[in-house]
């Protein structure tokens, strides 16, 4: 009995506190409605239009558009580019995060800033600089030409440009995460005689697993969807150096709107899968 009176008082305090610290119901629902309308207009509408336009001329046109040989070759190229760039940037992200969060050294802040650099460079400039290095009139242009190696307007150029654009994603996700977790667990394991790889595999990796997957999935979405940088270095050769986003552009410029949106719907699907996985990884990470 003695305990219930303070409990009731506390409850009453809680109620009055909540009233003082929140808006009246109508303000709350007005704000929620406004936010909902903003989301519907700005984000959901573009999503719906892609689906509506893709199926405007029916299933047959849709199916024909996405099974067209040029579309399939673009899909293959996009998958191949992601298959090469995502592991490379993942490996880099892990190495960079390990060096930056487990050790103290001079110039660390500068290194972190440089890793973020590709985020503040226009994708078009990202593509341009590879043209200036590897293009016909670029730094290595003559040498590459003499040895019959083509980088720009071919697959290597697309891979390089994509590497640049997706460069920070994994590192950026891992650095704050590993900073928070400190290094005591790893140090304890090393003191007990564990080797470096074993420490990483059995201690670090399980701790950063969900954050790492989160970074990889964002990196992958950008790798498959990059447009500006890839557009500069691709050369737009149909069936050869055309990725899915570039194929959307080509079809659109040829006024084949249904086909363009059909291919775009594949990329929309990729985005939606990314969002679902991202939400899942975030929830897992929180637990």
């Amino acid at each position: 009995m003695a305990g219930t009176v303070p409990a009731v008082q506390a409850k009453a305090r809680q109620v009055s506190r909540n009233q003082a610290l929140s808006e009246s119901t109508w303000v709350k629902w007005t704000l929620i409605t406004l936010a909902g309308l903003v989301m519907l207009w700005l984000v959901v509408l573009p999503l719906l239009v892609v689906i509506a336009e893709a199926f405007k001329k029916g299933w047959e046109v849709y199916a024909a558009s996405i099974t067209d040989p040029d579309a399939l070759s673009a899909l293959r190229l996009t998958l191949l580019v992601a298959f090469i760039t995502v592991p490379l940037n993942t490996l880099f992200g892990i190495a960079a995060a390990w060096a930056i969060t487990k050790f103290r050294f001079r110039g660390k802040q500068l290194l972190v800033t440089l890793i973020d650099l590709p985020f503040s460079v226009s994708p078009v400039i990202g593509g341009l600089m590879y043209v200036l290095v590897y293009g016909k009139r670029g730094w290595f242009g003559t040498w590459l030409d003499d040895h019959n190696i083509q980088i720009v307007f071919a697959l290597p150029g697309i891979i390089l440009a994509t590497l640049f654009i997706t460069f920070p994603f994994v590192a950026r996700e891992l650095i704050p995460l590993m900073e928070d977790q400190g290094q005591q667990e790893e140090e304890a394991a090393v003191t007990l005689g564990a080797k470096g790889w074993k420490v990483f595999w059995h201690i670090t990796l399980p701790n950063i697993k969900w954050g790492l997957l989160y970074g990889i999935i964002l990196c992958n979405a950008r790798a498959m969807g990059e447009f500006g940088a890839v557009s500069v270095v691709s050369g737009h050769i149909r069936g050869e150096t055309n990725t899915l986003p570039l194929h959307v552009e080509i079809l659109y410029n040829e006024y084949q709107f249904s086909a363009s949106f059909a291919v775009a719907s594949l990329l929309l699907l990729l985005a939606l899968v990314t969002l679902v996985l991202k939400a899942w990884f975030t929830r897992k990470h929180a637990h």
């Binding site: 989301m39 959307v248 363009s260 985005a271 969002l275 991202k278 939400a279």
Partner: peptide, 26 residues
Amino acid sequence: KSIFDALVDLPFALPTAVAGVSLTAI
């Protein structure tokens, strides 16, 4: 709310060319 929250990231995940053609159509 959770769908709302997830959809905020759609512009991050959606290839920019898709956003471009879709907004133009709208």
